[in-house]
Amino acid sequence: MTSAARRMVEVSGTEALWLLESAAQGRLVYLRREVAVVRPAVHVLQYGRLIVRTPAQEAALAGRGLLTYHADEIRVAGGTGWTVTATGPAGVITDPDEAAHHRRTLPGWAHGPHDSLVRIHPQTVSGFRLAHPEAK
């Protein structure tokens, strides 16, 4: 089946969060010197907030205000899957007990100054399912 035979169907914010909750990995996106930086990340959705562990320097994330998180699951062979983007105010998790808990429960790629924990309060959530035309 060609890519022209596929379509993207927008999903509700609730479904997008449900899809995001089903994923374990994604990408944290932020600006540094007016250039988009994308870092791999792992996450958990907890009480409507995203807890993200990423190999980005805490100093680069502190005071950012808004952060964007993106996750997807694309099955190229079948031409199906989904993509979700969430944006909202964020802050670095500084409480030592909370940080220790999330470091135990969320696997990381790097330790030390390139290992940050961030809490994002999603205000804008958009999602799309990739489907075949016959799917409803």
Rank of each mutant, 00 (worst) to 15 (best):
T124P: 00
L66P: 01
A36P: 13
T2R: 15
T105I: 10
V11H: 09
G81C: 06
Q25M: 12
R75G: 15
R129D: 07
L50S: 04
A100F: 00
A5E: 09
G65T: 10
G78I: 05
P55A: 01
V44E: 13
V9M: 07
R32G: 13
V84F: 07
E134L: 07
I120Q: 03
A90P: 00
R75L: 15
V125K: 03
A59H: 15
L106T: 01
H121K: 13
D95Y: 09
A86M: 01
Y30A: 07
R7Y: 10
W82C: 08
V118Y: 01
H101A: 04
V42R: 04
A110Y: 12
V9K: 06
P107C: 02
R6I: 02
I93P: 00
T83L: 15
A131M: 12
H101Q: 11
T54M: 01
Q25A: 14
G63F: 01
A16H: 03
T14V: 14
A16F: 04
L28V: 04
K136I: 12
L31E: 13
P55Y: 02
T54V: 06
H132N: 10
T105E: 11
I51Q: 00
E10N: 06
D95P: 03
V11Y: 07
A41E: 02
V125Y: 04
G112A: 05
S3N: 12
L67S: 03
E34R: 15
G88P: 08
G13A: 09
T68D: 04
P89Q: 14
H111P: 02
V118L: 08
P89D: 09
T105A: 12
A24I: 10
W18I: 02
R7L: 08
A77R: 13
S12A: 05
P122A: 06
G127H: 07
E21S: 05
R64P: 05
A71S: 15
G127S: 10
D97C: 07
T14G: 10
V9F: 02
T54C: 05
V38K: 03
L66T: 08
T54S: 08
V42A: 04
S12Q: 06
A131I: 02
G48H: 03
Y69S: 07
V125Q: 03
I120Y: 03
R32P: 08
R75S: 14
I51R: 00
G79P: 09
G79D: 10
K136R: 08
V37G: 09
S22H: 07
A24K: 10
P133A: 11
G65A: 07
T87E: 13
T83A: 14
T80I: 14
D72F: 14
A23C: 13
L50G: 00
L31Q: 10
A135N: 09
Y30S: 04
G81K: 08
K136W: 08
D95T: 04
A4M: 02
V92R: 04
V84K: 03
D72P: 08
E34Q: 15
I74F: 15
E34Y: 15
A77Q: 15
R49V: 11
L19Q: 03
L106F: 02
H132W: 11
R103K: 09
M8S: 12
L50P: 00
R6N: 05
R119S: 14
